[in-house]
């Protein structure tokens, strides 16, 4: 049974090894199922791979370790307040750099809290972006013909394609 170990080792998609405590891993449904199914002990040579790159996995594990105590035992209001502040600091990251990777990882690992947090962070960042900046981060090409752009401008004066 997994209850005898406190931490497990996982592999990132880049092949790097990471340690994650059992209580932190429980924040992810798939990892939790894995804990129940697989024998994790020192002499167990099977190391599961998580399809998340190393850079992202470091951040995901950092989030899990921080949130695990509260998720497992509940916490006071002041702890919740502190955690909220921590989340804000944690999410101060470049959207081009890592935010979308975190979003994908949180989705893949069924981590509701991190997924909501990352979606909200992305939405907040997008509010201040121009249309062309949005296209860039989402890899979207402007597929409106110049006639269509003209028509949209007539319907919605002031709309910008840049």
């Amino acid at each position: 049974m997994s209850s005898s170990v406190e931490a497990i080792t996982v592999l990132s998609s880049d092949g790097d090894e990471f340690k994650i405590t059992v209580s932190a891993a429980k924040l992810s449904k798939p990892l939790n199922w894995m804990l129940e199914d697989v024998c994790f002990s020192d002499d167990c040579d099977e190391v599961p791979t998580i399809e998340v790159n190393s850079k992202t996995l470091v951040k995901v594990i950092e989030y899990c370790e921080k949130h695990a105590p509260r998720a497992n035992s509940g916490a006071s209001d002041s702890d919740a307040e502190e955690l909220k502040k921590w989340d804000i600091e944690f999410m101060k990251m470049d959207v081009k750099d890592i935010l979308f990777h975190i979003l994908m990882a949180a989705n893949y690992l069924h981590m509701e809290g991190l997924y909501d947090l990352a979606c909200q962070t992305a939405a907040d960042l997008m509010k201040g972006m121009t249309v062309s900046q949005i296209r860039k981060i989402f890899h979207i090409k402007n597929d409106f013909s110049s006639e269509e752009q003209e028509q949209l401008r007539r319907q919605h004066p002031g709309c910008s394609f840049d």
Binding site: L103, N107, C119, K127, V131, F138, L152, H156, C159, F161
Partner: peptide, 26 residues
């Protein structure tokens, strides 16, 4: 590339003002 369900989950959090602007994305 974000899958469509993730894009939708992000977009639904945006204010109407931003969404009106983003009609011009594609």
């Amino acid at each position: 590339f974000l899958p469509e369900d993730i894009i939708i989950t992000i977009l639904k959090r945006l204010p109407v003002k931003s969404l009106i602007r983003f009609r011009c994305v594609c």
